[in-house]
């Protein structure tokens, strides 16, 4: 039911539909309400404490107060935590995705004993709430001596990222026509080669979608990092934001600057790769 028609017209009609105009206005108002928190946060992040306490909620700052960002950056030690988040995300996402793609290939193109069972096991994991297992996760990671290390965070991150990716990629790989890989098989290529030279290239759009989705999820993850990264030198941005709120919660300007700093990378990535993002999200949920 995609509307290729001109604005404000019902499908198959060329008259302007007054109800649609009303609807449009309602939507605009609703969108303004929806975006208001973001506007409020950004505007507070540019206000001095006096402005925050004195002026109205949406009053523009009397003087743009960029110092809040410098102050938040320094006091929240965001240079360290930002870098930590970058390391955690940019190591975890590619490795996790590679492992998922490998597993998805094996489960979709190679006959393995209990292959269907393994697939079911992964699918089961797509909905498993890790929030329930924070304590055992802590003790498992502590058991291998990896508390306070990125390895200790990457492993559970991968463990809980793999199921959804395997599920999506398995569905995709299964649909790849056999002819594509037959030639390679005749040439005696191994599965490793076929996977790398045939399947990876054709699945780039799916991989990109999953990459973006996983990037945002990993960047935003809080609960697991909370139990595994105890030392604030290892903190990722969400932990640093929480710590900042606890320590400097009444310095409203810097607090909001800290929020903006934490949120912006994920938002920028989303805005740039919007198409992939929504694609990756809906691919698994609604096959329509």
């Amino acid at each position: 039911m995609s509307a290729a028609t001109a604005p404000f017209r019902q499908m198959g009609s060329d008259r302007i539909d007054p109800l649609l105009v009303v609807l449009w206005i309602v939507l605009i108002v609703l969108a303004l309400i929806w975006i208001a928190p973001a506007v409020f946060i950004v505007s507070t992040s540019l206000k001095s404490t006096q402005d925050v306490m004195g002026g109205g909620a949406f009053a523009p700052p009397t003087k743009v107060y960029w110092q809040n960002y410098a102050s938040a950056w320094e006091r929240g030690r965001f240079s360290t935590t930002f870098l930590n988040s970058v390391i955690v995300t940019f190591v975890k996402v590619p490795i996790g995705l590679a492992f998922s793609a490998m597993a998805a290939y094996a489960l979709s193109r190679i006959k393995l004993p209990y292959g269907k069972g393994f697939l079911a096991l992964f699918v089961f994991g797509t909905m498993l709430p890790f929030q329930v297992m924070l304590a055992p996760l802590f003790s498992v990671v502590n058991g291998i001596g990896a508390i306070n290390t990125f390895i200790g965070l990457w492993l559970p991150y991968i463990a809980f990222g793999v199921p959804y990716q395997v599920f999506i990629l398995h569905g995709f790989f299964k649909e790849v026509p056999e002819e594509l890989s037959e030639a390679a098989i005749v040439d005696g290529a191994s599965h490793f080669t076929i996977f790398r030279q045939v399947f990876l290239p054709i699945s780039l759009p799916v991989l990109a979608a999953l990459f973006i989705l996983d990037f945002v999820a990993t960047w935003n993850e809080f609960a697991m990092a909370l139990v595994i990264l105890l030392n604030n030198r290892n903190w990722t941005l969400p932990l640093a934001l929480m710590g900042f709120q606890g320590e400097f919660g009444s310095d409203y300007g810097p607090l909001n600057a800290a929020i903006v700093t934490t949120v912006v990378p994920a938002v920028v990535v989303y805005l740039i790769f919007q198409r992939y993002f929504v694609g990756g999200l809906t691919a698994g949920a609604v096959k329509g």
Partner: peptide
């Protein structure tokens, strides 16, 4: 947009 913002944020 709010979907991509970290829940803690």
């Amino acid at each position: 947009l709010p979907v991509v913002i970290a829940p803690i944020a």
